[in-house]
Structures are given as C-alpha cells and as structure tokens.
C-alpha cells in the first residue's frame, strides 16, 4: 500500500480552480517531485495535503488514514512535515531554537512537567537540544547554531526550515521549492541532503522549479498545469512527454526539459 494516496482533490478560489481533481500516490521511500508552471497549483496542493487549507472535495489517505478535516498541527504529529515557499521561521530565535521547536511535535509542550521543573522536563530538553544539533549537522548548518534566523542568508533559511521539519520525526516530508535562492554549489549540497533524509527512512515530496535537481533526485514526477495533473512518471519519460513540453512552451523552463 502506498504511504500517501491523493484522490480527486479539488480546490477553487472563486471562479479559479487552483487544484482540479488531482490524484496520485506516493510510495514509501520514494522521492517524488511535483512540477508545473507558475500558478499551476503546486503550493495550493501542498496546503491541502497538510490541512493548512481545506479542499472543496477529494480525499487524502496517509498510512490509510484520512487527513482531510484534521488540524494542521495534528497532521504534523501524524508524521507529515512540510516547509513553506515563503519560509516561516521564528525570526527572533536562534537556528538551534528553531529546530528545537520542531521537536515539540513529538514531546508536546509538557505543561505540568515544565511548570514544576520535573527532571523529566529537563531530560526532554536535553534530548531535544541534542536532536536539534544532529539535524543542524545533517543539513550542514552547525556553524549557524547560535545565529538568529533573521540574520541568515536566504538559501540557508530554507535548509533551516527543512531541519525544523525533520525535527518533528516525520515519515513524509513535503518541501516547497527547497532550492529557490540557492546557488549551484548549494543546490548540489541540497541534493545530498535530500538523499540523506531519504536514507534516514523518510519519504519526500518536493515542489521544485530547478529541473536539474528534479531530474537528478526524483524517482517519479507529477506534472501539474492550471490545476490539472497532465502527466506522471519517471523523469526520463516526463522529459519526452508532449503534453508536458506543450505546458512549458513559452516558459523559460522549456529549454531545460
């Protein structure tokens, strides 16, 4: 059974159908990419899959359980983490604290132990701190540990958001344009990070405009255009797909395909 089953998901804004009866599957251990021209509905789809937005209709099963109707924070605790196209970091906190907040998903806010300063609270804090350090190393941000998120360069902020998402111990990670704002070298490093995440047992879905990265890392690609899924398959087939090429005609990305 697939980890995530997306079925006939639809969301419209007024007259505009941003996501139109989209269905696909994500299998355990995969890296799946979702691509499409600007405004194709990729971010809207992410918001729906993580319950940050509500669909008009459709269903999403994660590990066989319906996600639609859940609160977003519950979805995270169920094992679906995400990053945002416009990074949503805690600007006035350090990189280390940002990642620690991700660990709150697993251990809760533990009100009473915290209020009473029970040893269990302190132990949990220590573990969270170590876990955050491990994840900072994983994404290569260990030297930024004490910096405020607000002071970090744009590309690295995305990596920090990925680290925070991983801190929630997800089984599925959705990344919205992780390579935006990265230079070539950083993008290559990001590819490594993605493989490492997958090797740690998480499944990945990425929305990405950088075709080099998409073609290299993804096992399968879903192509959206104006809300509809127009193609799905392994990178090599997608590159040759006439519908995909047509969708991208006129777009700069067309040359890269």
């Amino acid at each position: 059974m697939s980890l995530l089953q997306v079925r006939e998901v639809t969301r419209s804004f007024g007259g505009l159908i941003a996501v139109d009866r989209v269905s696909f599957d994500v299998h355990d251990g995969q890296i799946k990419a979702i691509i499409g021209p600007n405004g194709a509905g990729k971010s809207t789809l992410f918001n729906l899959l993580t319950c940050f937005d509500r669909p008009d209709s459709g269903s999403v099963l994660f590990e066989g359980r319906e996600l639609f109707g859940e609160r977003p924070d519950r979805v995270v605790r169920m094992g679906v983490a995400r990053s945002f196209q416009n990074t949503q970091l805690f600007e006035e906190m350090t990189a280390h604290e940002n990642v620690i907040l991700g660990t709150h998903a697993r251990s809760g806010s533990s009100f009473t132990p915290a209020a009473l300063r029970l040893p269990s609270a302190r132990k949990r804090d220590d573990l969270a701190s170590q876990e955050a350090d491990r994840l900072l190393r994983l994404v290569g941000l260990e030297s930024w540990r004490g910096s405020l998120a607000a002071d970090m360069p744009h590309g690295l902020r995305r990596l920090l958001e990925i680290a925070r998402a991983l801190a929630t111990s997800p089984r599925l990670v959705l990344l919205d344009e992780p390579a935006a704002g990265l230079n070539t070298q950083e993008t290559t490093a990001l590819g490594e990070v993605l493989y490492r995440i997958r090797d740690h047992g998480a499944t990945l879905v990425i929305v990405e405009h950088d075709m080099g990265l998409v073609m290299e890392v993804s096992d399968e690609i879903v192509v959206l255009d104006r809300g509809c899924k127009i193609a799905e398959g392994p990178p090599r087939l997608i590159q040759k797909d006439p519908a995909v090429i047509r969708a991208y005609l006129g777009e700069e990305d067309a040359d890269e395909l």
């Binding site: 993580t50 940050f52 609160r71 977003p72 924070d73 519950r74 995270v76 605790r77 983490a81 995400r82 990053s83 945002f84 949503q88 970091l89 805690f90 600007e91 006035e92 906190m93 604290e97 620690i100 907040l101 991700g102 709150h104 998903a105 697993r106 251990s107 809760g108 806010s109 533990s110 009100f111 915290a114 209020a115 009473l116 300063r117 609270a121 949990r124 804090d125 925070r164 998402a165 801190a167 929630t168």
Partner: peptide
C-alpha cells in the same frame, strides 16, 4: 517563570514569530 522559560513559553514565543511555522512544528496552539 518555569512555564515562560520552558517549552510552553518557547511555543508561545514561536506563535508570536510565525503562526504557520508554529503549526508546522506540530504545536497544538
């Protein structure tokens, strides 16, 4: 003071910074 300096306090500070980010951290606001 323990609450403010501990996890609940950190979660509430996070909420001040970014509500979406707080939800994405799986925190039950």
């Amino acid at each position: 003071a323990n609450i403010v300096n501990g996890r609940p306090g950190r979660s509430m500070r996070a909420l001040h910074g970014s509500e979406l980010g707080t939800m994405a951290s799986g925190i039950n606001i």
